[in-house]
Design a protein around this nucleic acid. Structure first.
Lengths: 202, 202
DNA sequence: CGCTTGACTGGCCGACCGGTCAATACGTTG
DNA sequence: CAACGTATTGACCGGTCGGCCAGTCAAGCG
């Protein structure tokens, strides 16, 4: 609301990015006008053009900014645990689920990006997926997980099961017999972990 | 392209609905103008207002129309098989996957609906989910599936795993090590079916 | 036939869109 | 202090938006 006492282009950029992220993620790029973003962030519409050039460029900047923060947090999460053990996968799923639970804007951002079919964004988390798949592969070689499935598909599946739960939450919350976040997570983990156990344990 | 020789309001409505579905699903409601829909369907913009009242009402009609067709096809699919057996779940997953594979507009329609958080739409497939969950429950009671998981969550999980694969396809097709539709489906089914097997078989 | 109903048209409206531009205010630097 | 670069402003542009309205036209019916 209150504008900064002195000129601060970095803060201005940040305020615009924050407001744009919130609005874009809520209503989609075409559903938001630069005037709304200007009003929300407390700056002039012209100033947005000055700092970002165009609406399209602003959207690109918003995606890059939010995605890089997302990638940083997830990368830190992955690198915190170096040695694969039996509980690593379960813990990773749990943490990713909790992460999405606390950051609904990330869930919606990803959903918009998917609908855009923005192929450039796939490069942004490719490294993340590569790292996750590598952990799965290590666990497979250690005999902790079945080795007849593609590690990348395992990562993909668990990302899908978590993100889609929150993306479609308003939709399937009315389904008969559906449980809350924790109950869904528990059932998913039961099925997922049992399905990934090595053959000799089945 | 060519307009009907005589006046045919039903055909006109259908042409508008078809064009609107294609455009809405591709660019989103706010990304499409009534003028584009009018031009694509070969009618006047005023005629759209005459038949549907407003852009919002047209979108509602498009959703209801497409969704009812989707529900019909899926309901027929479910009711075709009455007796639960060991291969029913696997077959259902496979057919649902193939269904989405051949109807990309359904995938995108669902994705838009999810982003809208239109809770009214959840009623449309609640019956579908209820029926699917009932089949799972029957299989559980017959000892064909583990019974310590919520049947509705099983349905939800397999719907998520299938639909999100196609929704995010453009995004994760660039991920290192990812396979094609069939390879992903195979791996998912391996994990899913093994994870749902009753305890004594593990 | 004349009359009613509703499908259908073209034109128009005010609001709003993204983008541009000249002018201004401020901070930094020489 | 003067000069310069840039953050910032508000007015303005052509174009498009969804919606509205008066009127035309075709079909059904007594």
């Amino acid at each position: 609301m209150d504008s900064p006492a002195t000129r601060d282009p970095d803060l201005t950029r940040a305020r615009i990015l924050d407001a744009a992220l919130a609005l874009f993620v809520e209503h989609g790029v075409t559903g938001v006008s630069l005037r709304e973003i200007a009003e929300t962030s407390g700056v002039t519409k012209s100033l947005i053009h000055h700092h970002f050039g165009s609406k399209e460029a602003l959207w690109t900047a918003v995606k890059a900014h939010a995605f890089s923060r997302y990638a940083e947090e997830q990368m830190a999460e992955l690198e915190a645990r170096q040695v694969p053990d039996t509980s690593l996968l379960q813990t990773s799923v749990l943490r990713y689920f909790r992460f999405l639970q606390q950051r609904p804007e990330v869930v919606r951002l990803l959903a918009w990006i998917h609908l855009e079919a923005d192929e450039g964004c796939s490069e942004m988390d490719a490294e993340l997926v590569r790292l996750g798949a590598e952990r799965i592969r290590q666990a497979q070689q250690a005999g902790l997980l079945r080795d007849d499935v593609n590690p990348t598909h395992v990562v993909t599946l668990f990302v899908h099961a978590c993100s889609q739960w929150f993306t479609a939450k308003a939709h399937h919350s009315g389904w008969p017999g559906i449980g809350d976040d924790q109950a869904y997570l528990d059932d998913f983990l039961r099925i997922f972990m049992a399905g990934l156990a090595p053959p000799e344990e089945r």
